[in-house]
Computed example of a mutant assay.
Amino acid sequence: MLKMFKTVEGQVESIEQPQEDCWLCLCQPTDVELATVSQETGVDLADLRAPLDDEERSRVDVEDDYTMIIVDIPTVEERSGRDWYETIPFSIIVTENMIITVCMQDTPILHPFMEGKIRGFNTFMRSRFILQMLYRNATTYLRYLRIIDRESDKLELKLRHSMQNREILMLLELSKTLVYFTTSLKSNEIVMEKLNTLSRIKQYEEDADLLEDVITENKQAIEMANIYSQVLANMTDAFASIVSNNLNNVMRIFTIISITLAVPTLIFSMYGMNFQDGMLGMPFSDSPWGFVIVVVSSMVLAGVVTWFLTRSRLFK
């Protein structure tokens, strides 16, 4: 989808044709839209396609007529009724008279710009526009990290009374997401450091504080991602041990029951043997109360064995 915007008297307006100092927004673009933008702006078609590759790395490329900035942005994907977080490439291409953004998905990072909700946003102030988008990107990372932290707290409560693998697998998925976030944020940090020294893009005096805020927010996101990643790793190991310990407790109970039942089983199996006439029979075999005596004796002996096993150090 191709959308075009331009700031007119402080208001963001949608336009139908590319104009000077406008913003071309490509979200989930078609081949026809990419070819049209490439023909009208002079941007290489390969550069326009670059952020459509999931594996594209964050970088800054300086060409003759334009500068391309690629960063990783967070996105939400719904799977099995749950929200999972990942990162995708996002491209900002700055030419002499316009700015172009390309993304494989419709990202909520750009919605406030389209709706004119960003204070001080002007399409002709391209360097500030870049920093404003990078700032929104960093704050979006922070917001998703807080959501992930709350999700891990909910999983922690479930794992306290759970012996299933589902919650632990979800923790592992969150841990993997944090690894992706950390890697993407560090790559974005390198891009921001290069932007700080890039003289090709015009810098406004007011942008110095904004750039500092962007770098600060990005570093804070990196720090939070590292902390949450360590917490999740420790939590995963701890609850894996808890689940294993719960399983051991169950096996302990089953072992005690098995040994206890083995005692009367042994006695009854011996009394079930056939003996020839005239040979020495089993005790109480000639007594009319023999069956009752054997059953009661077996139950008493089984109770003694159970009492001993439950207090034995081997089964604690």
Rank of each mutant, 00 (worst) to 15 (best):
L2M: 05
K3F: 06
M4P: 14
F5C: 00
F5W: 08
T7Y: 06
E9Q: 01
Q17N: 06
C22R: 11
L24E: 11
C27R: 02
Q28C: 07
P29F: 02
T30Y: 01
L34D: 09
A35M: 11
R49D: 12
L52E: 09
L52K: 00
L52G: 10
E55A: 13
R57N: 13
I70G: 02
I70R: 01
V71G: 10
V71D: 09
D72F: 07
T75N: 11
T75C: 13
V76E: 15
R82M: 02
W84V: 02
W84T: 05
P89F: 10
F90L: 02
F90Q: 03
I92N: 10
I99D: 03
I99L: 09
I100T: 08
I100S: 09
T101E: 09
V102W: 06
C103Y: 01
L110T: 11
H111G: 09
H111S: 15
F113Y: 06
E115I: 06
K117M: 15
K117R: 13
I118F: 00
I118Q: 08
R126T: 15
S127K: 01
F129T: 11
I130V: 13
L131T: 03
Q132H: 08
L134P: 08
R136K: 15
N137C: 10
A138W: 03
T139W: 06
T140Y: 13
R143M: 12
L145P: 00
R146N: 15
R150S: 10
E151W: 01
E156Y: 05
L157P: 06
R160P: 06
S162K: 02
N165I: 11
N165S: 14
E167S: 01
I168N: 02
L171I: 00
E173A: 07
E173M: 03
S175W: 03
S175A: 11
F181R: 02
T183S: 14
K186I: 05
I190D: 14
V191D: 12
E193W: 12
L195N: 07
S199V: 09
R200T: 15
R200L: 14
E212P: 04
E217M: 05
N218A: 07
Q220V: 09
E223A: 02
A225W: 10
N226K: 10
Q230M: 14
V231Q: 05
L232C: 15
L232I: 13
A233T: 15
T236L: 01
A238R: 03
I242T: 04
V243K: 04
V243W: 10
N249H: 10
M251A: 09
M251V: 15
M251R: 01
R252Q: 05
L261S: 04
A262L: 14
L266V: 07
I267C: 12
F268C: 06
F268K: 04
F268I: 07
Y271V: 03
D277L: 10
G278A: 12
P283V: 09
P283D: 15
F284M: 03
G290T: 07
G290L: 09
V292T: 00
V295Y: 07
V296R: 03
V300C: 12
R311Q: 14
R313G: 10
L314M: 11
L314V: 12
K316W: 05
